[in-house]
């Protein structure tokens, strides 16, 4: 089975996020970047699938800070090939990103494309369906397990309230992964380093597909409320209302 995993790097949330002077983007000076947690699950699920089917796994990511390390780590975990998309410009949101990814994926033979169901900076969960739409392939979202079934792929999709449904889809297809069957594996530092020394990452020129994208006009931190005050009885409520001049 030929598998493709789309990886996205994100600002690491252990650092406090700040808006830069332009007022339209994050201040990246002190930011660290890390792999989207859901993409890590997608990679793990793909690795399990690769092992079960003796398949071939390619990971793809947009170029940027810390991306090489992310791709070498994926190779150390067991991916066969890593592709870095260069000169694609800044993708604006999932629409832009889906266009760039879909262009590259369309040139790769593939049975299944896996990616995280969402990411902290784009929680609309639209990356997988948009890539699928551009490629004209079926898509299942919020997936917690992928397995091969005769001729096709059997998929567990999670609904709210813990309900899980099993689907069979024809390949090629795109899935958005919510969780992997087991915790993402660890790539020992020595193995990553060994891969880094013996492999060169493949690069491919990126270009956006014809999708409409958005432009950021303004970025602000969410407004914090004043906090709620818990009142014990009606007397306290009356006091508050009096102090505010309401009654």
């Amino acid at each position: 089975m030929k598998l493709v995993v789309l990886l996205k790097r994100l600002p690491d949330l252990v650092e406090d996020l700040e808006v830069d002077d332009s007022g339209k983007a994050l201040d990246t000076e002190f930011l660290k970047f890390t792999l989207n947690e859901f993409d890590d699950y997608a990679l793990e699920e793909a690795l399990l699938l690769k092992e079960a089917t003796d398949g071939e796994l390619t990971v793809i990511a947009l170029d940027g800070e810390d991306v090489d390390k992310m791709l070498y780590t994926a190779l150390a975990k067991g991916a066969d090939k890593a592709l870095k998309i260069e000169n694609a410009g800044e993708a604006s949101g999932n629409r832009g990103l889906a266009g760039i990814f879909a262009k590259v994926v369309s040139s790769l033979p593939h049975d299944l494309v896996l990616t995280g169901v969402q990411s902290a900076e784009d929680i609309d969960g639209q990356l997988a369906p948009m890539v699928a739409a551009i490629l004209d392939e079926p898509c299942v979202e919020v997936v917690t397990q992928v397995a091969t079934a005769d001729g096709g792929v059997s998929i567990h999709k999670e609904y709210s309230g813990g309900v899980v449904a099993e689907f069979e889809i024809d390949t090629p297809a795109v899935v958005g992964i919510q969780a992997s069957r087991q915790a993402p594996r660890y790539a020992p530092v020595s193995k990553v380093r060994q891969i880094q020394e013996s492999t060169t990452l493949e690069t491919v020129a990126g270009s956006a597909a014809d999708t409409s994208v958005f432009t950021v006009v303004q970025m602000t931190p969410p407004e914090t409320g004043g906090g709620a005050q818990m009142l014990g009885n009606i007397g306290e409520l009356i006091k508050v209302l009096e102090s505010k001049g309401v009654i």
Binding site: V14, K32, T34, A183, R185, Y186, P188, V189, K191
Partner: peptide
Amino acid sequence: AVLEGNVPDELVEMFQNVSEY
């Protein structure tokens, strides 16, 4: 054992944290 991927999850989390942060 770690190279073979046989490592308790609690250790994996710690290794990952130390390696990232």
